[in-house]
Design a protein around this nucleic acid. Structure first.
Lengths: 353, 353
DNA sequence: CTGTTAGCGCTTTCAA
DNA sequence: TTGAAAGCGCTAACAG
């Protein structure tokens, strides 16, 4: 049998209000009555129905995590997921919150409503991961609600949104400028997330560096990438068919030395001799590709950690409203050390080339 | 503004029931009315309040995952967590369920109510991970509710509970018997989870093998382990102070070659010369310790996969009620191959030695 | 085809 | 210190 507050009240010959008082640890119950009610609750293992509770309170004791793009369009690595998991637990789990994931919302007539849990008022606070489509309109709606949330990505159309992001524009600017300074004039870009904001930002940064150096932009030097197997290698190879290309920015984010080397090999090149690279990584000081001229570190974890902590402050009223966190990437000449392994994705990606 | 079904009804000059019909895709709404309502809902991004919904329906569109023991008493590895995550997504996420984790419920007057989410009726189905305390009474209560759940662990006191477990009794029996057959008569056990059911099962299996061989039991050969740093090494060392101990079962589950070697070294022994070991692993065919005489594979993932799939069948009415899944461990002589790395825990463990 | 209405279990206001 | 009752937003039985 499943007890309600009324059942308990009836059983003990008190009113529902009294039971409610005990359950919610409120004042105004006689010592003796309280003891009796507590004992009974303990005995039958009563806990208030969370749906009914959330109907009256404006809270659910639950934190939501969702992805603003399908998981197969931004392969979440196992490392990042477990890291995120432990962050969410550190900030919210220690307050007894449930952490609720909605990474695969059903697609209704072509629309993937990643914020459904928010509309349904399932969460006290929400963390939105991923990369936005440039035409996203959902975030504005979330923002308008006024409830605590943070997007771990930027959306230029909505600069006042609560975000924690890495500056990909700057990353590509730094990478390109670095190669220009080394004397290169025809620089290719392996462009991750071409249809998403961070992919577009890459190109903006690239152009800025070219502009600054008085070099002209050639769209054929940008190779948009999908997450299909071999795509990185093939696009890289295609890029190197242009024999004037002497340097490449690996802005794939794949941290996949093997695929890069394959591309170089297929292109009949040799890194350090007739090809220079700047390679992106998400790990501070990590070496992705030994032969790279330089690496650019994108501090995504650091950004996310600060953002989630601030979201906690917002929820627990230690600060007020939305915030914008923007971390700058760091470029460094390749240090000594082992190459890091290519991250393993959490979900399998089912995409054709 | 947050619309309710009544707001929408008023706005459009229809009844709340009609709006409800459209929202829930039910029959009995005129084509034209339906279109109007749908358009409005789309426009304002209306979604029914999940609390109110769960109050009326008996469903929440959410699957719960909880640990029946504190996370620092059974360090969850990163690998296992991401694996679990993707399993839950495969079975339930594809049906649009939210996956809700409650791994750190607040402790109220000494009691850690790991099933709080179930009492609160937050979940359509629940997965309980971890290892039970022998005196657990919560599971019986969960079982009595009749709602779909599975415990990824056994509880001897409640054999009819819905469980998916690995036979740790058998694992320790096999390990011990193997060493007896190799001529050993004084065999130590590094006992993982000593206060939990699987830890106790280890001893039962150990005794069974001794009994069969007519050997007597000596409690000093059992070294209970905590997850404190160095504890494995120290307990191992302590065990080896008994110079008659010629063989040891590593039933720690730690898959930690380094700590084992440290223990051997401190004990002044040498594996393969004056000490033989059987080492447990959770990965099929994996080599944890090259110098081990044999490995025992505990198919936890395989068990969990089948159990979670069956839970899905139960929830989606492709099968009926509770089930018991029990996988047997497999012993094998160490094959060739690289040693696997020690798994990384998701959460830091804060325990003193 | 559409509307009225009675709860689901809880919180909270107000009254006793 | 305790109780009666309204109502949160939704669903479903029942009327029209």
């Amino acid at each position: 049998m499943r007890y309600t507050i009324h059942d308990i009240a009836r059983e003990l010959g008190v009113s529902a209000r009294t039971v409610g008082r005990v359950v919610n640890q409120q004042e105004g119950v006689g010592e003796e009555t309280r003891k009796r009610v507590e004992a009974f609750i303990q005995e039958v293992g009563y806990r208030p129905h969370s749906g009914a509770q959330s109907l009256r309170r404006q809270a659910s004791d639950s934190i939501g995590f969702m992805l603003c793009a399908p998981a197969d369009q931004l392969p979440l690595s196992q490392d990042l997921l477990t890291w995120l998991f432990s962050q969410l637990y550190e900030v919210f789990g220690t307050h007894g919150k449930f952490i609720s994931f909605d990474m695969n919302p059903p697609v209704q007539n072509g629309v993937r409503d990643y914020a459904r849990g928010i509309w349904q008022q399932r969460f006290d606070a929400s963390v939105i991961g991923g990369a936005f489509y440039p035409n996203d309109t959902t975030l504005a709606r979330i923002h308008a609600l006024g409830a605590p949330y943070v997007a771990l990505a930027r959306l230029p159309a909505l600069p006042e949104a609560c975000t924690g992001a890495v500056d990909y524009e700057e990353a590509c600017y730094l990478s390109t400028r670095y190669l220009i300074e080394k004397g290169h004039t025809r620089i290719g870009v392996l462009q991750g997330l071409p249809h998403h904001v961070p992919g577009i930002e890459r190109i903006v940064g690239y152009k800025r560096a070219l502009d600054e150096a008085g070099l002209s932009y050639d769209a054929t030097l940008i190779k948009p990438l999908s997450f299909a197997p071999k795509n990185l290698t093939n696009q890289f190879h295609r890029l190197l068919l242009d024999t004037n290309v002497s340097a490449v920015v690996d802005a794939s984010g794949a941290q996949d030395a093997h695929s890069l080397r394959e591309g170089v090999r297929m292109g009949g090149r040799m890194l350090g001799r007739d090809l220079d690279m700047v390679v992106w990584t998400y790990t501070s000081g990590a070496v992705v590709l030994r032969e790279a001229l330089a690496h650019v570190w994108l501090p995504v974890r650091e950004t996310a950690a600060e953002s989630i902590a601030l979201l906690g402050d917002w929820l627990y009223e230690r600060r007020d409203g939305p915030f914008q966190v923007l971390y700058r990437p760091v470029i460094y000449d390749t240090p000594q050390g082992e190459e890091v392994a290519k991250p393993k994705p959490v979900f399998e990606v089912h995409l054709e080339e």
